[in-house]
């Protein structure tokens, strides 16, 4: 028994080359989630493509990434080898948790991937299209229950934006938070709620199996292979993307920042990254430099406004 154990461990050790440390990527979440898999995919591709000889991933879970963000700001300042993965969820979490640090305290480098939010109803539902659902909500907001991820997350924000766009009081929406898309999916399949809202990837297998009806997606244009209108197409001016990004430490010089940005660009353009995106079903939404900074500022502003409208932030 000892020998088998030892043998397997030696095998595992030999599989890992020992290089000098070039980048440490913090995933501000537990192993297994979206940010963690983004960080670990970056690690794999950066090593395989020779962008960096050695990449470490650390996990600091907690409170929508704000625990990790606070630790990153405190410990990584001025160190160009430190990176952190984050995303849209963090924007909302910083506001609702009244986090002492924000994305202004790090150096955002680039947006890497993104996923549209999807609105579905159970297959047995009488509601046939997004207009039918929004009309029902306008008639009696309490009677339309929405199952989605945690309160103040991207799903909740999208419902708030949709209500606002349709002229419904956003504080009146009957949003029921579940711990993640999985439990919400079960509630929708079991006909417990009127509608469901979560990442497209979460619902797509169910839609393909015919157990859910996809009413709309929140992207700015139709998605290949997905038979559903965008919200703006249906007449509601709502575009939401649950994006993931990578940021560097605060207090970097311009040269250091340019070096990190160049490495990340090399990563995003590499064949290995494109293949990983395709394998995992992530959309390539690479955006860097001033464009990304402007986009980020705009989204923070819009999110703050809608969280105030829903009543989650004072």
């Amino acid at each position: 028994m000892k020998h088998a154990l030892f043998g397997a461990m030696v095998a595992a050790a030999l599989a890992m080359p020992a290089f000098a440390n070039d980048y440490t990527i913090m995933a501000p979440a537990s192993p297994g989630g979206g940010w963690d898999s983004t960080a670990r995919t970056m690690q794999e591709v950066m090593q395989a493509e020779g962008i960096s000889s050695n990449v470490q991933v650390t996990n600091v879970p907690g409170a929508g990434g704000t625990v990790g963000l606070a630790q990153f700001v405190a410990s990584a300042s001025g160190d160009p080898s430190q990176l952190i993965v984050g995303g849209y969820v963090m924007v909302g979490a910083i506001l609702t948790n009244a986090s002492p640090v924000s994305l202004a305290d790090v150096t955002p480098i680039a947006r890497l991937t993104g996923e549209a939010v999807a609105i579905v109803v159970p297959a047995a539902s009488p509601i046939q299209d997004i207009k039918g659902l929004v009309d029902a909500m306008a008639a009696d907001p309490g009677a339309v229950s929405w199952a989605g991820g945690s309160a103040g997350g991207v799903d909740h924000i999208t419902v708030g934006l949709l209500a606002k766009a349709a002229g419904v009081d956003p504080t009146k929406i009957n949003y029921i938070a579940f711990s993640g898309g999985g439990e919400a999916t079960a509630a929708i399949l079991g006909n417990q709620v009127t509608a469901g809202i979560s990442g497209l990837g979460e619902f797509l297998p169910q839609v393909q199996a015919g157990t859910m009806r996809l009413l709309a997606v929140s992207s700015d244009a139709r998605i290949d292979g997905v038979d559903a209108p965008t919200l703006s197409e249906a007449g509601y001016d709502v575009v939401v993307q649950n994006w993931r990004m990578v940021a560097a430490a605060p207090g970097l010089s311009d040269e250091q920042k340019a070096q990190v940005a160049a490495d990340i660009e090399k990563l995003a353009k590499s064949a290995g990254w494109q293949k990983a995106l395709a394998d995992k079903g992530w959309a390539d939404t690479y955006l860097a430099g001033a464009d990304f900074d402007a986009q980020l500022a705009k989204e923070i502003e819009a999110t703050t406004a809608v969280l105030k409208d829903i009543g989650l932030v004072q």
Partner: peptide, 10 residues
């Protein structure tokens, strides 16, 4: 050695 180096626990 076992958990951090081999099994990648930080």
């Amino acid at each position: 050695a076992v958990f951090d180096v081999l099994l990648q626990l930080n």
